[in-house]
Design a protein around this nucleic acid. Structure first.
Length: 321
DNA sequence: CAACAGGATTAGT
DNA sequence: ACTAATCCTGTTG
C-alpha cells in the first residue's frame, strides 16, 4: 500500500526505440565474443557487427503467426507500429525469463539488495558489460530506482548509463503490468501469465536443483542457446560422430535397447553456464569444475548420465520428462 | 590443457 | 538428511 511509486516513467517509445537499436538488436546479433573490448566510451555509436544472427530466428522475431515481414515488406508506417509492439513483447518475455532464472520479482522496487546484485550480475553477463565490481552493493531496489542516471554514472562511469537504461526498461515493464490490471483480468491465458507464480519447476521456494536449472536454460534457446542447447535435432550430426574410421574400439556394445539419444544436451560455453548458475545460487566462485562435479553426483542418482557415445561437455537426462 | 571421474570434507536448508 | 560447494588426486583425449 502506500506504494505511491511515482510513475515518472511514462513508458515512452523512445525507450524501446533505443532498446531495440542498442539492446535487442545488439544482443540478437549473437553479440560475438567481443568481450568488453568493444565497449569503450559507452553509447556513442552502436558498432554493427557483420555477424549474422544464428539463433534468434527460432521463434523470436515476429512471424509469430500473422506477420510475414520476413524481409520483403517495405516497412510501412503500420509495420513500424507492429514492429514496435512486437519488440515490446519480446522485451517483456525476456524480462519474464530473467525473473524466473534469477528468482527475483519483476518489479525492481521489490528487490532486496541481494536481488539487485543478481540483476546487475545478470545484466552484465547478458549484455557483455564491463565488470562493475561492487559499486552497487547494499542497495535495495527502491533505492536503486530512486537514483538518477547521473548517480548511476557516478558509481559506474563506464556503463552506468546503460545500466540505468536497462533499469528504466524493467521499471516501465513493471509499471505496464500494474496498469494492465485495471479491473479483474485474472491474467488471461493469452500471455503466459507472468504473475509471480514462482518458477513452476521449484515449488514453494525450495532451493532449485542444478538439473532443474539446466532444463530451464534449455527451455529458452532464444536466450541461452549460445551457452547450452539440446543435441537431439537433426539426426545428421550423429552419424559422423566417430569421425569417420571404424575405430575398432573392441567392444561394440551397441546394446542398450532403451535409452535412445533423447534428452541429450551439450554445454557450449561451460564458463558462462557456470556463471549463470553462480548468479542464481549466489556463489560468485562457481566454475565449471565445481558445476560438473555436481552433475556427476547425478550419475548414481539416475538423473543425468553420460550418453552412450561420450563426448566432451555432452550429457543426457535419464528421464526425458 | 580442459574435461572427466570420484573421494573427502564443509556449508547451507 | 540431502544437495550442493569446495577441494583434491588422478586419468584421458
Amino acid at each position: 500500500m502506500g506504494s505511491s511509486s511515482p510513475p515518472s516513467t511514462p513508458f515512452c517509445l523512445h525507450y524501446f526505440d533505443m532498446l531495440y537499436s542498442e539492446d535487442v538488436a545488439w544482443a540478437a546479433k549473437g553479440m560475438g565474443e567481443t568481450s568488453q573490448s568493444g565497449v569503450p566510451g559507452g553509447r556513442g555509436e552502436v558498432k554493427k557487427e557483420p555477424e549474422q544472427c544464428p539463433i534468434i530466428d527460432s521463434q523470436g522475431l515476429g512471424l509469430g503467426g500473422d506477420g510475414e515481414l520476413q524481409g520483403e515488406l517495405p516497412l510501412e508506417e503500420h509495420s513500424l507500429e507492429q514492429m514496435q509492439s512486437m519488440v515490446v513483447g519480446e522485451v517483456l518475455k525476456d524480462i519474464e525469463t530473467a525473473c524466473k532464472l534469477l528468482n527475483i520479482a519483476a518489479d525492481p522496487a521489490d528487490w532486496s539488495p541481494g536481488n539487485v546484485q543478481k540483476w546487475i550480475l545478470w545484466t552484465e553477463h547478458q549484455y557483455r558489460l564491463p565488470q562493475l565490481g561492487k559499486s552497487f552493493q547494499e542497495l535495495s531496489g527502491k533505492e536503486l530506482c530512486a537514483m538518477s542516471e547521473e548517480q548511476f554514472c557516478q558509481r559506474s562511469p563506464v556503463c552506468g548509463d546503460v545500466l540505468h537504461a536497462h533499469l528504466d526498461i524493467w521499471r516501465s515493464a513493471a509499471w505496464m503490468k500494474e496498469k494492465a490490471a485495471p479491473g479483474d483480468v485474472r491474467y488471461c491465458g493469452s500471455d503466459s501469465g507472468w504473475a509471480d507464480s514462482e518458477v513452476d519447476s521449484s515449488c514453494a521456494g525450495q532451493p532449485i536443483h542444478l538439473w532443474q536449472f539446466l532444463k530451464e536454460l534449455l527451455l529458452k534457446p532464444h536466450n541461452y542457446g549460445r551457452f547450452i542447447r539440446w543435441l537431439n535435432k537433426e539426426k545428421g550430426g550423429w552419424a559422423l560422430l566417430g569421425s569417420g574410421e571404424g575405430s575398432v574400439g573392441g567392444s561394440p556394445q551397441t546394446s542398450h535397447p532403451h535409452s535412445p539419444h533423447i534428452g541429450i544436451f551439450k554445454i557450449e560455453d561451460s564458463a558462462q553456464v557456470a556463471r549463470l548458475w553462480g548468479i542464481r545460487k549466489n556463489r560468485p566462485a562457481m566454475n565449471y569444475d565445481k558445476l560438473s562435479r555436481s552433475i556427476r553426483q547425478y550419475y548414481k542418482k539416475g538423473i543425468i548420465r553420460k550418453p552412450d557415445i561420450s563426448q566432451r561437455l555432452v550429457y543426457q537426462f535419464v528421464h526425458p520428462l
